[in-house]
Design a binder for these strands. Structure first.
Lengths: 214, 214
DNA sequence: TTATAAATCCCTGTTTTCGGGGATGCTTAT
DNA sequence: ATAAGCATCCCCGAAAACAGGGATTTATAA
């Protein structure tokens, strides 16, 4: 029996490419293609009688993006599988998708064979992630756990950012309308908290966290 | 008269997508599609009689990549236009391509309209780069020029690295078997030379240059 | 409601950084 | 050969950072 697919991507070219490789396989039936997630939600909502096996979706789309669409599908229709394809492999996106139970993730520059492999795997009831994606996800989890205990407060983030921007204690105090003693306390606490030795360590931390750009 | 195109990309899906949007326009004639640059070189070398207007190529391909292919084409056949498409927009790649006289550059996630626009522009004899790509290129040039004069000596690199690794002047002096005054001089010179204000600035510079990891 | 965490401020003393100087050899190009 | 650049060392004084305490008020969570 044929499997029913929906594809969502606002890039005509990618869509055409995907359709062309799916056409070579005879056992897929493309129910619907959409330019953004909202259309897919509407389609699924209306066609309740239809068996939908898999939604293939891009991440970046206007209005309702792939992440939101995946969340919505997984919340409302747990028997619809989802495969997300994306240009980029940002740990944040991957994490959010996996946490919301996506069935597979592929980079857009994957080869034809991998696409078909992923679709087959997912329709068979398993998850599909390339080794690279799994590594990114785990690496991210690992780092988060390592740094979990260390939570900086809003003020601390403000202060460490300004430190990394090369301002002195007095300047930061003036900027934030605080006493220089206060900033000194923050610096001291940050050095202890982050287990570093001096401004260089604080600066590196700020860069790693993206509070400032190097 | 129809324009003759060659397309090189090792991703079947992208190729199919591109072909499908080119098919909607009747005035393009696809002479040849290839999985890597070497095939294109061979094709061009053999078919000397044929008028080839434009080669559209991916950057990352096995064996001969898009950058090498573009260089080769521009060196041997100055009347063949080139359009490079890529997943990413790394300043390095963009710079290298523009310096070797590519006629256009597009990200793979561009919309159909932009693809056709780019091809038309290039066939009309002009260059095509999106505003974003131009910005990246110029930004890169600007930064390179800004940093060109600033050349750190071996010793300076050693010292700034250790500073960014959170060692104090005295510790660095001990490590390098130098007087603490020497290290102080280096620190002072570095701050002046690099036009920063303090250790935070030095640390950021060291990270940007890859002397230490954040 | 009662801890706990966050934000703010203060003191003392030591060490380091920072911003000026300048000096001496030793290479390396011009 | 002479200038320029590099590596090394030194001094001084002011400013800032570092290390170690502690205190108060206001949210917030247990």
């Amino acid at each position: 029996m044929k499997h029913n697919l929906i594809i969502a991507d606002d890039h005509k070219m990618f869509l055409d490419g995907l359709l062309s490789i799916l056409k070579t396989e005879s056992n897929y039936n493309i129910l619907y293609t959409a330019k953004h997630g909202g259309h897919v939600k509407k389609y699924i909502t209306i066609n309740t009688e239809e068996k939908i096996d898999l939604v293939i979706t891009d991440v970046t789309m206007p209005e309702v993006d792939g992440i939101a669409l995946n969340k919505w599908i997984k919340k409302t229709n747990r028997n619809i599988k989802t495969l997300v394809v994306s240009m980029h492999n940002s740990p944040k996106i991957i994490d959010e998708l996996i946490e919301s139970n996506v069935d597979g993730y592929l980079q857009k520059n994957a080869q034809k064979e991998e696409f078909l492999q992923a679709i087959e795997t997912i329709l068979g009831g398993e998850k599909y992630f390339s080794k690279e994606i799994k590594d990114i996800y785990l690496q991210n989890k690992f780092e988060k756990n390592k740094e979990k205990e260390i939570k900086l407060t809003k003020r601390e983030v403000e202060v460490i950012s300004l430190i990394a921007e090369e301002f002195t204690t007095q300047e930061i105090a003036d900027k934030l309308f605080l006493s220089k003693h206060t900033i000194e306390s923050y610096r001291k606490n940050l050095i202890t908290k982050l287990n570093v030795r001096n401004l260089a360590g604080l600066t590196k931390y700020a860069i790693k966290k993206g509070y400032v750009s190097s």
